Amino acid sequence: MTVWDRPEPPHRPVPLDRRRIVAAAVVLADEGGLEAASLRKVAARLNAGPMRLYGYISTKEELFDLMVDEVQGEILPEEPPGDWREALQGLAHRTRRAALRHEWLADLLGGRPALGPNGLAVAESTLAAFDGLADVDTAMHAVETVSAYSTGAIRREIANLRAERATGLSQRDWQRASGPHMTRMLATGRFPAVAKFVYDGTHTDAETSFATGLTWVLDAVAIKLAPPSSA
């Protein structure tokens, strides 16, 4: 039985429900990461004993499932997408923006499918855009391919943001600090391909890089979804 199927216990002197518990956990995780959203710390935020929470949530994993579903509500599109490309592109960008608001989300992306009401609503909106366009297996491969790209790109961006906070160096500051070492290494002539990318490549911001890579992936998916040529 999932956490969504299990009924909540009746209210006691300190009123609790899963919505309040999840809201407190999201705030704590936003402030200090997933480790800050332990059941003990959530209970303390709600001025309740930790054992009270176990009537509503049995495990840390259940709490994380509920937190992800809460954020899935932010990812759900306001209007049904016009086609499959709009559905996948919008989903990827909304997921990225949600992860920038809730960095802990990046640690939970890419796991088992979300089974909460918001997660299922996101899946329904996305998969419905393929109705009549492709068979089920092709549609799933398309969704999984774009999801794999966006999950990897989002995790890399969040990792860079965390590194900036940990070191106190922005990406540009880190590049300047690493510059002398890279110059010495590239001067050896052992890394000509790396040197070409370092000296000739255009360095874009994270949002532009994400959008560009997403476009390339969607273009590749479009080829697979195109009807076979009659020639």
Rank of each mutant, 00 (worst) to 15 (best):
R176S: 02
V198P: 06
F197N: 09
Q175V: 10
W174E: 00
G168I: 05
L186P: 04
G179H: 01
L161Q: 14
G168P: 12
P180F: 07
T167S: 11
L169S: 11
R190Y: 03
H181C: 12
S178C: 12
D173G: 05
E164C: 03
P192V: 12
E164F: 06
S170Q: 05
Q171H: 11
G189W: 02
A159N: 10
D173T: 11
N160C: 08
W174H: 12
S170A: 12
G189D: 06
S178Y: 09
F191M: 00
A193G: 01
T188E: 04
F191E: 01
S170K: 06
F191G: 00
W174M: 00
A193H: 04
D173Q: 15
A195N: 03
P180D: 10
R172N: 09
F197S: 10
G189H: 00
G189M: 09
R172F: 08
A177Q: 08
S170M: 09
P192M: 07
R165T: 13
Q175R: 14
V194D: 00
F191Y: 03
N160W: 05
A195V: 07
M182Y: 12
H181L: 13
G168L: 14
K196D: 07
A193R: 08
N160L: 00
R162I: 01
G189A: 08
H181I: 12
M185N: 05
A166E: 15
R172L: 02
G179N: 06
A187V: 01
A159L: 14
T183Q: 03
M185T: 04
R162T: 04
T183I: 13
F197K: 02
A166H: 02
A187H: 05
L161H: 10
D173C: 07
F191N: 00
G179A: 03
A195K: 02
G179E: 14
T183G: 02
Q171A: 00
S170F: 11
R165L: 11
L169G: 07
G189R: 06
D173M: 08
A187L: 04
M182V: 11
K196R: 14
T188S: 09
S178T: 12
R165Q: 15
R172W: 03
V194N: 03
D173K: 03
A177G: 06
T167C: 09
Q171E: 03
S170H: 04
N160V: 11
K196A: 11
Q175L: 15
R162A: 08
M182A: 11
A166F: 15
T167P: 06
R162M: 09
Q175E: 13
A195Q: 01
